[in-house]
Design a protein around this nucleic acid. Structure first.
Length: 633
RNA sequence: GGCCCGGUAGCUCAGUUGAAUAGAGCAACUGCCUUCUAAGCAGUAGGUCAUUGGUUUGAAUCCAAUCCGGGUCACCA
C-alpha cells in the first residue's frame, strides 16, 4: 500500500498501546525527512501535545522507542523540536527493490468495476486545432489513462460541434470564393483549408459591416433591412454623437460596439449565412451535401492531428444529432415543478435559492438551448454506459454552465447527477493576453508541432549520437521529442490555473522538460544494454545503501501514491513533477556511483536493478502523460 | 454590480489536508567530459509569498478587509 500508510498504521498502534488513544490516519502528519536531518520519514508531534498533555520531546522519544523495539525495519529515531525523525533500515529498501525491479505492473491497481466516461477535445468543425485545444486533449487523455491504471473502466468521448452559424460562415465563404477548390486540389490540410474560408468569411463580414456602419453614422440607414433595426440604429447614432461631442468617449465606445453588432448582422454575407442555417435545419439537400463535404475535410485534418498527438476516442457524439435533445427533460421538469413556463412560452428554472440566476432551458420557439442539449447528452451517455462518473474536460469559462448542469440534473432527481465532474482548466494565454481567432493571434497546433520537430532535429544533429539511425527512425525520434516537449510543457502545470505560453522563448529542451526526462531514460537504457551484452547476472545481495541509492529507492516507492493522488485530483501535473524529480534524482545518483564498474558484484546488481526500476517508472509515468520515451537519443 | 478563480525569485511554475531555514527550471555567474549518453552534475547569486489585520504552539497555506488581474452572469455554443 505504500510505506507512508504502513508507518501510519504502526504509529497508530504505538499511540494506542502507549497512551490508550485512537488516532485516525488523517490526524497523523507524516512526510519525508528534510535532507539536513537524519532519517527517512518524519512524524509531526505538535498535534499530540494537547491531547496527551506531554511535551513533544517526551512523546517523540516514547513513540520512537516503542517503534524501534517493535519493528525491525525502523532502526533509529531522533527528536528535534516537535519532529520525530525515523530511519528505515536499508534492508527494507533493498527488499522493496528486489520485489519490484522487474514488475511490469508496478504502480497499477486492480480493477474496481467503476465505469467512467471522459469527454474531452470537443472541437468546432470550422477551424483547425490550436494550443488551447491541445491543453484540453492532453489533460483529457492523461486523466483517462490515470483512471484506467487505477482500475476504472474508461470510455473516452468527444462531442463534435459540427453545426451552427459558424459552420455556415465557412460554407458560404467557400461557395463565394473557392471556385471549386478542395484540400486535394490545393494540397492544404482539410481543417486548415476550411479554417481559411472561415477567416475569409469573418473578413468579408468585417468589410461589409464597415460600410454599413459608415452609412449609419452618416444618417443613412436604408442599408438596414428591417424597421426595428433602423429605429434602434437611429437612436443609437444620435446618442453616440451626443456622447462623443460631450467628451464621454468611453460610453460612446460602448454605443459604437452596439452599432457595429447591428452592422454585422445586417451585412449581405451574414444574412446569406443565416438563411443557410435555416436551409440546413430544413434539410435542404444542397446545403446538407455541402455541409457534409466540408465537415469531411475537417475530420480528415483532425484525424491527422489526433494521430500525431495521440488522442483517441471510443465514442463520438455529433452536435448535429444532439442539438434537438433534452426536450423530454423539459416536459418532465415542468410536470414536477422544477421548471416553469413564462408567458411567451419559454421555459426556465429558478436557481436563485442556490445563489445563481434564472436559467432558460427552452426557447419561446420551442427549440433547445445549450444547457438543454447537455442535459439530453448526459442522459444518453448514462443509458449507454451506466457510468459511475462522467467527467467533462472543459475550460474554466464554463464553470457556471457546468455548475448549472449538475444542479439541474440533481433537482430532476437523476441518479447519475452526483457522478458528474467538471475538469476545469485555465486558458493558455500569450504574454500579450488571450488568443483571439479574429485577431489572428492563435497558436496553431500543427505549426507548433512542426517547429518543435525542427528544433528536435537540429539539436539531435548537433549532438550526433544517433548517426546510425535510418530516416524513418530519425523521424520517429523527432516526433517523440517534439510531442514530448509539448505535452510535458503543458501537463506539468496545474490544470486549474491559466498558463502563459511564450512563442518567442518557445519550449525548452533543458531542465524541467520532457526531453530531459526522455534523455535520462535513454541514458539508463544505454547502461542496461551494456549489461545485457555482458550477459551479467549474480545472486549476491547488497547489505547496505549509500545515501544517493537510498534516496532514489525512497522516491521510487512513492510512485503508486503519486498516481493515486493524481487520479483523486484529476491532476496529471502531480505525476509530471514526480517524474521530473525522479529523473533529477537518478542523474544525481548516476554522477556519484558507477554502475557497470561498481565496486562489488552485489553493488553492481543493486544498481542495475535500480536502473531498471527507474527506467520502468519513467516509461510508465510518461506513458500516462501520453509521452513516449526513446531507447536512444 | 452579484458570483467564481488567481496574485510566490527578473521570467515560467512547484509548495498534499497548516509544520523545521519557502523550492525547481529558464536567464546570470563558477567549476566538472581520456571513466556507463554533458539534452547532464555540483555550486554562487536572486524572496516584504499583493497589502493590512486576525485565528494558532506554528500561516505562502485558514478567516476578514483592501488593492490588482481574469472569467462569468445570452432565447450564442
Amino acid at each position: 500500500m505504500g510505506i507512508t500508510s504502513e508507518l501510519k498504521d504502526w504509529i497508530g498502534g504505538s499511540l494506542k498501546s502507549l497512551y490508550g488513544q485512537e488516532f485516525e490516519a488523517g490526524e497523523l502528519t507524516i512526510g519525508t525527512t528534510k535532507p539536513e536531518f537524519e532519517g527517512d520519514y518524519t512524524l509531526v508531534l505538535f498535534s499530540f501535545v494537547k491531547v496527551l498533555k506531554k511535551s513533544p520531546e517526551v512523546i517523540g522519544n516514547e513513540i520512537g522507542e516503542h517503534l524501534v523495539a517493535r519493528f525491525p525495519f525502523i532502526t533509529a529515531f531522533n527528536v528535534i523540536k516537535g519532529f520525530l525523525n525515523l530511519t528505515i533500515s536499508d534492508t527494507y529498501w533493498i527488499n522493496f527493490l528486489d520485489r519490484n525491479f522487474s514488475n511490469s505492473n508496478y504502480g497499477k491497481m486492480p480493477g474496481n468495476n467503476q465505469m467512467v466516461v471522459v469527454e474531452y477535445s470537443s472541437p468546432n468543425t470550422n477551424k483547425p486545432l490550436h494550443l488551447g485545444h491541445l491543453r484540453n486533449n492532453f489533460l483529457g487523455w492523461s486523466v483517462a489513462e490515470l483512471l484506467k491504471v487505477s482500475g476504472h473502466n474508461v470510455v473516452k468521448t468527444s462531442v463534435l460541434n459540427d453545426r451552427g452559424i459558424h459552420i455556415c460562415k465557412s460554407m458560404n465563404s467557400w461557395l463565394q470564393f473557392a471556385d471549386g477548390a478542395t484540400p486535394d486540389s490545393t494540397g492544404i490540410k482539410g481543417d486548415h483549408f476550411v479554417g481559411d474560408y472561415y477567416v475569409k468569411a469573418e473578413n468579408t463580414i468585417k468589410e461589409q459591416a464597415a460600410l454599413i456602419l459608415q452609412s449609419m453614422l452618416a444618417g443613412n440607414d436604408t442599408t438596414l433591412d428591417n424597421e426595428a433595426d433602423q429605429q434602434k440604429a437611429a437612436t443609437l447614432v444620435s446618442r453616440y454623437y451626443e456622447l462623443s461631442t460631450t467628451g464621454k468617449n468611453e460610453a460612446a465606445e460602448k454605443i459604437l460596439d452596439q452599432l457595429k453588432e447591428i452592422a454585422r448582422n445586417n451585412t449581405v454575407f451574414f444574412r446569406q449565412t443565416q438563411q443557410m442555417l435555416l436551409d440546413w435545419e430544413a434539410g435542404k439537400p444542397a446545403v446538407r451535401a455541402l455541409w457534409e463535404k466540408m465537415n469531411g475535410w475537417v475530420y480528415e485534418g483532425f484525424n491527422e492531428t489526433y494521430k500525431k498527438i495521440g488522442s483517441d476516442f471510443d465514442q463520438n457524439y455529433f452536435e448535429s444529432e444532439t442539438y434537438i435533445l433534452g426536450k423530454e427533460f423539459v416536459e418532465e421538469g415542468l410536470k414536477s415543478g422544477v421548471f416553469f413556463r413564462k408567458e411567451d412560452g419559454s421555459c426556465w428554472i429558478d436557481l436563485t435559492a442556490e445563489g445563481l440566476d434564472e436559467k432558460i432551458v427552452l426557447r419561446k420557439d420551442g427549440t433547445s438551448v445549450y444547457i438543454t442539449q447537455d442535459l439530453g447528452l448526459a442522459d444518453i451517455k448514462f443509458q449507454q454506459y451506466k457510468y459511475d462518473q462522467s467527467i467533462y474536460v472543459i475550460a474554466d469559462e464554463q464553470n457556471y454552465h457546468m455548475k448549472v448542469l449538475k444542479l439541474i440534473l440533481q433537482k430532476l432527481g437523476k441518479p447519475y447527477a452526483n457522478g458528474i465532474n467538471h475538469l476545469s482548466y485555465g486558458l493558455v494565454e500569450l504574454p500579450s493576453g488571450r488568443m483571439k481567432t479574429r485577431e489572428g493571434t492563435v497558436v496553431d497546433a500543427d505549426e507548433l508541432i512542426e517547429e518543435l520537430k525542427n528544433v528536435a532535429r537540429q539539436k539531435t544533429e548537433e549532438l550526433g549520437k544517433v548517426k546510425d539511425f535510418n530516416p524513418g527512425e530519425l523521424n520517429e525520434l523527432y516526433d517523440t521529442i517534439a510531442i514530448g516537449a509539448l505535452k510535458f510543457f503543458i501537463l506539468r502545470v496545474d490544470a486549474k490555473k491559466k498558463m502563459i505560453f511564450n512563442p518567442e522563448e518557445s519550449i525548452d529542451f533543458h531542465g524541467f522538460t520532457g526531453p530531459f526526462i526522455q534523455w535520462t531514460h535513454a541514458r539508463i537504457r544505454s547502461i542496461l544494454r551494456k549489461a545485457e551484452e555482458a550477459n551479467y547476472s549474480t545472486d549476491k545481495k547488497a547489505g547496505s545503501l549509500f545515501p544517493k541509492e537510498k534516496e532514489l529507492i525512497v522516491l521510487l516507492e512513492q510512485y503508486g501514491s503519486v498516481i493515486r493522488q493524481a487520479v483523486a485530483d484529476f491532476n496529471p501535473s502531480l505525476l509530471a513533477i514526480y517524474i521530473y524529480d525522479l529523473s533529477k534524482k537518478y542523474n544525481t545518483f548516476y554522477a556519484e556511483h558507477p554502475v557497470m564498474t561498481a565496486e562489488s558484484d552485489e553493488k553492481k546488481k543493486l544498481r542495475l536493478n535500480l536502473c531498471l526500476l527507474t527506467a520502468n517508472v519513467i516509461a510508465s509515468g510518461m506513458g500516462l502523460l501520453g509521452i513516449r520515451v526513446p531507447q536512444r537519443m
